[in-house]
């Protein structure tokens, strides 16, 4: 057990070091992520008509301020849930045979990738925390004030689980490469679906019924919509406990699916690529 923790710690450390090799590229990519928020502020300003004589008070329960705050919070949620390159990385490893490394060594591939991803995220937060604080400070007027401690705790839990759900969905898609070697178009489709199913595009309650309700039953909302709306006070404490419990169930389900896919996939695997 302790040996295992040590191994994971070394994987984490090594991944952090690897991540820091290309610092220039990394800092640049981190900063560029803040650009879209500017567009959102202007876009929703125009939709609500804030500069007109009769601005809209709310759209489906979202005021203009809440709407901008939503996008800011979604940005935080996605900082946890987005997994650039994970599915593609797994698929490439399967296709070009790098996966052999994980099969021959006494190591669990998914565990390894998980800790490497935690490392990537940690390094990312290290670089991004400054800009995040700055942006939230500049945009402080869009927030109604601090929510209660219970809600903040739920929010932090929702972020951690957003990471887990994001990781598990993407790795599952990557593992499909065991059956279909080429998954890049599948990943593209997933990204498009994810864009609106997760609430990254617009809050899910803006979609018409019953579509909105269906979307809320899928795990994708935990990637952006749920962590985005917790702080906005859209849930009672009871509802928060309920939602988080459902999310835990999703994590367990996705985890099991990953394990099954990995087990079946490696059975099927015939070591492509010489």
């Amino acid at each position: 057990m302790i040996a295992r923790l040590r191994t994971n710690w070394i994987i984490l450390k090594t991944s952090v070091e690897e991540r820091l090799v290309y610092r220039g590229d990394f800092v640049f990519a981190t900063l560029i992520r803040f650009l879209p928020i500017v567009t959102q502020i202007f876009l929703w300003g125009a939709i609500y008509g804030i500069h007109t004589s009769a601005p809209l008070k709310s759209i489906k329960g979202y005021s203009y301020q809440e709407m901008v705050a939503y996008y800011l919070l979604v940005m935080v949620g996605r900082a946890f849930s987005s997994m650039p390159g994970l599915a593609n990385g797994i698929a490439n490893d399967v296709r070009d045979g790098t996966i052999k490394k994980y099969l021959v060594q006494p190591i669990d591939m998914l565990g390894y990738l998980f800790w490497a991803r935690v490392a990537h995220k940690l390094v990312y937060y290290l670089v991004a925390i400054g800009p995040f604080i700055l942006v939230f400070y500049l945009c402080r007027d869009y927030f109604a004030g601090w929510p209660d401690a219970f809600t903040i705790t739920a929010w932090i839990l929702s972020l951690i689980m957003a990471f887990l759900v994001g990781f598990l969905i993407e790795s599952l898609i990557g593992l499909i490469a065991f059956w279909f070697l080429e998954v890049s178009s599948l990943i593209f489709i997933y990204m498009m679906l994810n864009y609106f199913l997760s609430g990254h595009m617009i809050p899910l309650d803006l979609f018409p019924e019953p579509l909105s309700q269906w979307m809320q039953m899928l795990p994708f909302k935990y990637l952006a919509y749920f962590p985005g709306t917790v702080i906005l006070g859209k849930y009672s404490h009871q509802e928060l406990i309920f939602e988080l419990s459902i999310e835990v169930v999703w994590v367990i389900v996705l985890f099991s699916l990953n394990r099954i896919a990995f087990q079946q996939g490696t059975r099927r695997y015939s070591a492509f690529g010489g």
């Binding site: 040590r6 070394i10 690897e18 006494p106």
Partner: peptide
């Protein structure tokens, strides 16, 4: 040496 260190852990 970083890879070696990782192997040290993986193989205990």
């Amino acid at each position: 040496q970083e890879s070696f260190r990782l192997h040290k852990e993986i193989y205990r």
